[in-house]
């Protein structure tokens, strides 16, 4: 779809960049992304991707806005309490960029949602079982996958370009057979801007993947906001991985 006059104005700061330009912006406009989870990570992720002009966003989250969300989930307002997060998010994102098509699913992610075509799936969930479901879907269907998590002062980020690599996958790094850790934002707390940092990086990786600039398949980044430290690590294929070992 060629850019129109409004697009040239709206996306001018992308168009000024040689490594995005018109062709890059057209790629973004023609892309379809599923964002699972509209909490502390999903809010910045969806905001930046809608602003960037990603043409289709599917938003999936069963939760309603609660007062305890407002400290960090920056798309929502006090008057949204009790409403579905995905409905409020759609309103705010459409107000930001009406040209983005937004589909909302006020329920947990399921096979029907996953079976639509996406160029990328972004994990903004708050639990490991959901991350493993998304990883399996992306690994088996060669869909690029960006996963992130945060709790307390800490954030975690990892991207998998399953278009070009079959392994490692999320399950190679964090084994789905092991017990789910008991710490999460609800019972252990989280610093709002840490989610903003990690969510913004998720959106950045998503744009890099869509434009063909992502080369760090399986690289994990950890952020410790309390000490201002980052750690970047590579991951290895688990030969016994239940998800991706059969791909080799």
């Amino acid at each position: 779809m060629p850019l129109n006059d409004d697009d040239f104005m709206r996306y001018s700061r992308h168009l000024l960049m040689d490594d995005i330009g018109e062709s890059g912006q057209e790629k973004l406009i023609n892309s379809r992304i599923l964002i699972v989870g509209l909490g502390g990570l999903g809010c910045p992720v969806s905001t930046y991707l809608a602003g960037a002009g990603v043409g289709f966003l599917a938003l999936c989250d069963p939760d309603r806005v609660d007062k305890t969300n407002l400290q960090r989930q920056v798309l929502f307002r006090s008057e949204d309490c009790g409403e579905f997060k995905v409905s409020c998010a759609k309103d705010r994102l459409k107000a930001l960029n009406d040209s983005v098509n937004i589909e909302i699913y006020p329920r947990a992610v399921d096979t029907e949602i996953l079976n639509y075509h996406y160029d990328l799936i972004i994990d903004c969930t708050d639990n490991l079982p959901a991350r493993h479901v998304l990883n399996k879907q992306c690994s088996e269907n060669k869909i690029p996958f960006v996963s992130a998590a945060a709790v307390g002062w800490e954030g975690q980020l990892i991207g998998f370009d399953f278009n070009n690599y079959s392994s490692p996958c999320f399950n190679c790094v964090i084994n789905g057979q092991l017990q789910d850790p008991v710490m999460n934002c609800s019972n252990s707390g989280v610093v709002g801007p840490v989610l903003g940092v990690i969510g913004s990086l998720q959106a950045t990786i998503a744009i890099r993947m869509l434009l063909g600039y992502f080369q760090q398949h399986g690289e994990m980044q950890r952020y410790d906001g309390k000490r201002g430290q980052w750690l970047t690590m590579t991951s290895m294929r688990d030969k016994a991985c239940m998800v991706c070992s059969h791909e080799l």
């Binding site: 502390g40 708050d126 709790v151 800490e154 252990s188 989280v190 750690l231 690590m233 590579t234 290895m236």
Partner: peptide
């Protein structure tokens, strides 16, 4: 656990001079 900035298993061999990092779980969002 990561050895020399590569995430490894708990039985991965460590050599003198290696850097071993322990990382707590992060699962919220």
């Amino acid at each position: 656990v990561a050895v020399n900035k590569v995430i490894v298993g708990w039985d991965y061999p460590i050599n003198d001079g290696d850097e071993l990092a322990f990382l707590p779980p992060v699962t919220g969002g």
